[in-house]
Amino acid sequence: MFLLSNVLMDPARAEELLSLAGSSLLPMLKGAITYTIPLSLITFAIGIILAVLTALARLSSIKVLNWIARFYVSIIRGTPLLVQLFIIFYGLPNLGLTINPLPSAIIGFSLSVGAYSSEIIRAAILSIPKGQWEAGFSIGMTYTQSLKRIILPQAARVSIPPLSNSFISLIKDTSLASLVLVSELFRKAQEIASTSYEFLLLYTEAAIIYWVICTILSFIQGRLETRLERYVTK
């Protein structure tokens, strides 16, 4: 309210803010395009692979695999993402292991996506009727062939909505990468704000950019669901 009344009464101030909003848009978009989006995509791809492996380990009858998967999920889910990022980026150098900002972020976020999504994928695999496995076996398929050809394609359809949710969360979580010095969208906003002191304007602007990205993704999610549901009775 204060900002609003302030601006309404002072045309010069309004112009100043508008110009800052305009000039800061480009660096922020650049941060989004060069870091936020690629970081999200790479992390998500690695994370899903990790998640499938973890889900399979959890479903496996091999005790050791099961135990490792449970431990991994428990550690990641039971500790804050920001703490994990700090351990990787600021902590590991104490062991002589220095990892650059971007790879640190990729490792941290991938581990996180892998753990959370493994539960989604495990549930999706379990939701496919046992008869589908048996049908695969009955035409001579091995476990791996049935999994790959019959079960996972169907599980993928079931897991699209929750995984899209994870992806959208991930995009927003990448703002934490600003704290391990990745110059992504939010870090750009912080940098500009620290010199101009226009915190409200710049952080709101950053919020809007995140919102636009996430809205576009929700739209793509809807399209993807329709496509994958073409073979399902409605």
Binding site: P129, E134, A135, S138, G140, V232
Partner: peptide
């Protein structure tokens, strides 16, 4: 298993194919 062909009560067709 490939010596026998199985027909199931609930068909168990692959719905995505």
């Amino acid at each position: 298993r490939s010596l026998t062909g199985m027909v199931f009560q609930n068909y168990n067709l692959f719905p995505h194919k």
